[in-house]
Nucleic acid binder design. Structure first.
Lengths: 337, 337
DNA sequence: CTGTTAGCGCTTTCAG
DNA sequence: CTGAAAGCGCTAACAG
């Protein structure tokens, strides 16, 4: 592997000059530049990224902490981020936090030890305080799918409350009055916000929120099944069900079917996230689009602009409003049940 | 950020000694070791991974090239790999190849420029020749889900032919005689092998393979739908359908349902991969387990053992036989249709 | 067991 | 516009 020294010798110039043509940050005459370029290609020279990092104090790597590595949600996010980063010659180092506060923290420290220039974090378990404190260290931190007011400009998130509102509104518009709700774990902000949106929609339609028609799940498919069973057990009537994510909606639909209910004629179901498998479900799930791809791209661009000082990188939005994706799992409420 | 030099001063020893206690590769007396450790924690010292890499010519990073970043299949794989790598203090740098030969090659070169110590590659588009040539460079290469005889010890793969065989066999055992097949793109080895397994099973049951009952898809859900439509159009009777992956099986089931067929009573369907969403489908899909997690883990361990010379790292298997996962999408053939 | 001394390959002042 | 030279923070012989 040729080094910069060999190139400089071959081109008859100094190390510094070779470095300059590589980085294009200082004027070099066209003539010498051509000589250097020729020498480089002749030797098949490739800069050593590690040495560059050490000398420049830039690793050109950004750490990507996600709570999980599998699942369409994270796949989409990583895919976008990796793509816009690599286009800019930076690379992504990944670490998974497994939705556990300790492990998330470990993953972040691991990335920091790796001297990442910036951190794009999708944390679910770690506290706001920890993240705020982290941002106050010398770390360039960016948060995806999480909104912490103190860190507002570095947060890329969706309006979960609006999403919850839209889900329930779609049902209300179709004449449903008794709407059950399976929430995510309420210690998570997004779960809380989605539930708040649900309540807000009910209030607008002058329908009292009934806590008994609510079940708190853990965002897993099985929680959807358990939730449905629990709701049935209350004996309370409901013609529609909102689930705080698609996995739970899937579980609930399965349970409903096993209980002999037809979806959507006897029970309308709405999910949340518009995860990939959503369109494989039967019936195809009506859900809320969680613009995860846009948020990932925005996070990456923010880093490019603010950390790597890329010009021409436009400003990015921080808030990405969700929308309703209307498919086959909801129906208009029939007069007689 | 404290450097090794400050630590050595604080502990009253030389740089070399500090380095030794960090790496634990040479004898240091307990007393001096204690002094050094004390100084390190007092200063909050963290080694600079970049400087270590430059000096030792080891980046402690392994490149992970996957054809896609989303999809349960890759998520599972990356998750496993990242996990076993990080436990060993190494990190994963990811790059996506997007199932395109040029882009896969670019992604690999990108990783190489990054001075990865090893490459774990899940390539779909790139040729065997390229990979063989790559392995002959000074690159530590490992292949997942691909078998190239010349690189046998560095390949971690499943027996796709056996998988195809098992899928069709399950149907034959249940009395099906007319079995349609939707294959993956036949330029891909796994698609070819799965089809070969299908044919082999048919032959064992003395059933002639009918090319008209076969459709070549591209592994996407829509190909499953198109495939089903095409098969129906032939007018040929078939009571069962094998699909070369789960996505296509999902598409075919949807199309069958839209055509008024009941799955499994009127049409039995088998998929391949046992991807996560498979159990969300209705009916739950009978499929072939593709031991992707085990292969990922094996690949990572191979790197740990052979590249990083970790002791106690047991030898790993190269071949991971698939198994049938029996769920609800197939039924015994009824006498009368 | 411990210290000295070269570098690893590149960036970056500082002169000229 | 170009060159010289001083590191970046650490590892790894080589002595002792």
């Amino acid at each position: 592997m040729a080094t910069i020294y060999e190139v400089s010798k071959a081109a008859g110039v100094s190390l510094a000059t070779v470095s300059r043509v590589m980085n294009g940050n200082a004027k070099v005459s066209d003539k010498t530049k051509a000589k250097v370029l020729a020498a480089m290609s002749e030797l098949g020279y490739k800069p050593n990224a590690i040495a560059q990092s050490l000398a420049s104090n830039r690793s050109n790597s950004v750490g990507l902490m996600v709570s999980e590595l599998h699942g369409s949600f994270f796949g989409d996010m990583m895919s976008t981020i990796e793509n816009t980063l690599r286009t800019a010659g930076k690379h992504a180092i990944i670490a998974a936090g497994h939705s556990d506060a300790d492990k998330e923290q470990q993953a972040i420290e691991f990335l920091l030890d790796r001297r990442c220039d910036a951190l794009i974090v999708h944390a679910e378990a770690v506290s706001d305080e920890y993240l705020i404190e982290l941002a106050e260290r010398d770390v360039e931190l960016v948060l995806v799918n999480r909104h912490i007011p103190e860190l507002a400009e570095r947060c890329f998130y969706t309006d979960n409350e609006l999403g919850g509102y839209l889900a329930t509104e779609a049902l209300l518009q179709r004449g449903h009055q008794n709407i059950a709700y399976i929430s995510g774990p309420l210690f998570k902000l997004d779960a809380k916000a989605r539930l708040a949106g649900h309540k807000k929609a009910l209030a607008e339609y002058d329908i009292a929120f009934n806590p008994s028609l609510t079940f708190e799940g853990g965002y897993h498919e099985t929680d959807g099944m358990a939730g449905f069973a629990h709701l049935m057990q209350t004996g309370l009537p409901f013609s529609a069900l909102v689930c705080a994510n698609d996995e739970m909606a899937s579980g609930a639909m399965t349970a409903a079917r096993e209980a002999g209910l037809n979806v959507p004629t006897e029970l309308s179901v709405v999910g949340f996230d518009d995860v990939l498998f959503t369109k494989y479900l039967y019936p195809k799930l009506t859900t809320i689009d969680n613009p995860i791809r846009k948020m990932g791209d925005a996070a990456a661009r923010w880093v490019l602009k603010h950390v790597y000082k890329e010009k021409h990188q436009p400003d990015v939005e921080n808030l990405y409003p969700p929308t309703l994706i209307l498919r086959d799992s909801i129906a208009t409420k029939t007069k007689v049940e």
